[in-house]
Amino acid sequence: MGQASVQAPPQQGLPLQGSCQVRCAGCRMILTVAPGMTEFSCPTCNLAQMLPPELMRGPAQAQAQAHGIDPTKIQLPCAHCKAILNVPHGLSRFACPQCGIDLAVDLSKFKHHFPPPPLEPPEEVNEVAIDVEREEDEGGMVGETFSDYHPPKLSIGPPHPDPVVETSSLSAVQPPEPTYDLKIKDDLESSKTLSCLQIETIVYTCQRHLQHLQDGARAGFFIGDGAGVGKGRTIAGLIWENWHLGRKKALWISAGSDLKFDARRDLDDVGAMCVEVHALNKLPYSKLDSKSVGVREGVVFLTYSSLIASSEKGRSRLQQLVQWCGPEYDGLLVFDECHKAKNLIPETGGQPTRTGEAVLDIQVGGLD
């Protein structure tokens, strides 16, 4: 191990070519490290330390393996004294041998500390050491892990084409027993158009819809799947299941009019080619089931903006939809991208949004 030199004043000349300048992790003095040197001690406070990984590039990196860098371990900076530590893979908590502070491994902050790895890096997990006490004081989770998700109680349908994960804590909670018998189960098993994850969601949704709340309204179901799971196809499967139960009217409310074409594609994919999709913004404000309009069944697709729209004569889309569904309506109400209906109950002093009120009204205005 060599000894670095304290940075010379500007009038005494520049550092040697190929050398680098770092701040001492102990006394914070600016040190000049000679070319090829990766481990050194500060001449002022005698603290032993090494160059951070981002400075071990080029020729110096070739010598790094011979100066204390263990390729089987991960080099992480201490969150307190900034010393570079060799941490074995899989070690989630440890104490810094330099300052003694308790540290933990945080997967989310690695990219903020290190440059991109070389072209052929050793296999490792992106990790960085953090101060445990500071993280726990802020209420954060340290080292949250994830597990692959597979339906634990259903075996219908092919595996999902993309990997889906859930937190390890959530994986310890078992879902309810599936008791609903799908009408389209045989079609789905033969066509394999929906994955086991999507079919599981349809089963639990239909199972929930069989229940009623204390006020007599039919219970709803919230689909919280992330991007890539295929919520559109799941919704199409729900519409197709309800179609087989005789519920041949459905409202599909989404964020944009162009998504109507995605809805048509998803219905076709699940085999529901006979279910028509009607874009509400292309229809007049007159009765949808009148002879002039002719919408007797199928999916009426609309946006949250259309839900609060009205004509020059004062007829609203909401009234039009309630009339089309009728007082005994028992079909699906799909609130896709439902965050668009936020702020029904605003903060103190605020006013509820028209969209939030309309979404509530369409559920209580004769639509269970």
Rank of each mutant, 00 (worst) to 15 (best):
M1W: 03
M1G: 11
G2K: 15
S5T: 11
Q7H: 11
P10Q: 15
P10I: 13
L14D: 10
Q17D: 06
G18I: 03
R23Q: 13
C24F: 02
A25W: 00
G26L: 05
L31H: 07
G36T: 02
T44V: 06
T44S: 12
C45W: 11
A48C: 10
Q49E: 05
L51P: 01
L55P: 00
P59V: 08
P59G: 06
A60G: 04
Q61S: 14
G68L: 04
I74G: 07
L76K: 11
P77K: 12
A79K: 04
K82A: 14
L85F: 01
L85C: 01
L91I: 14
C96F: 04
C96H: 10
Q98P: 00
G100T: 07
G100C: 08
I101A: 14
D102F: 02
D106S: 12
S108M: 09
F114A: 10
P117V: 10
P117C: 07
L119W: 08
E123A: 09
V125I: 04
N126Q: 12
D131C: 13
D131V: 01
V132N: 04
V132K: 07
V142S: 12
E144Q: 14
F146K: 13
P151L: 09
L154D: 00
L154E: 01
S155H: 10
H160K: 14
P163A: 13
T167M: 12
S168C: 03
L170C: 00
A172P: 00
Q174R: 15
P175M: 08
P175G: 06
T179P: 00
T179S: 12
K183Y: 05
I184F: 08
D187P: 01
S191Y: 01
S191N: 10
K192P: 00
L194Y: 02
Q198L: 10
T201H: 05
Q207W: 07
Q211G: 09
Q211P: 00
G226I: 07
G228E: 07
V229D: 03
V229I: 15
K231W: 08
G232M: 14
R233E: 06
I235R: 04
A236W: 01
G237F: 01
W240D: 02
W240S: 10
K249D: 03
A250H: 13
A255S: 14
F261T: 08
R264K: 15
R265Y: 14
D268I: 03
G271V: 06
E276K: 15
E276T: 07
A279R: 13
Y285T: 00
K291T: 03
G294Q: 09
E297A: 13
G298K: 13
V299F: 06
V300N: 08
F301M: 13
Y304M: 08
Y304N: 06
L307V: 07
S310R: 15
E312Q: 09
K313W: 11
K313D: 10
K313A: 07
S316I: 05
Q319T: 10
L321C: 01
Q323N: 08
C325E: 05
G326S: 06
F335K: 10
D336A: 09
E337I: 03
C338T: 08
K340I: 02
I345W: 11
E347L: 10
P352A: 14
T355V: 15
A358F: 02
A358Y: 02
V364H: 04
V364W: 10
D368P: 02
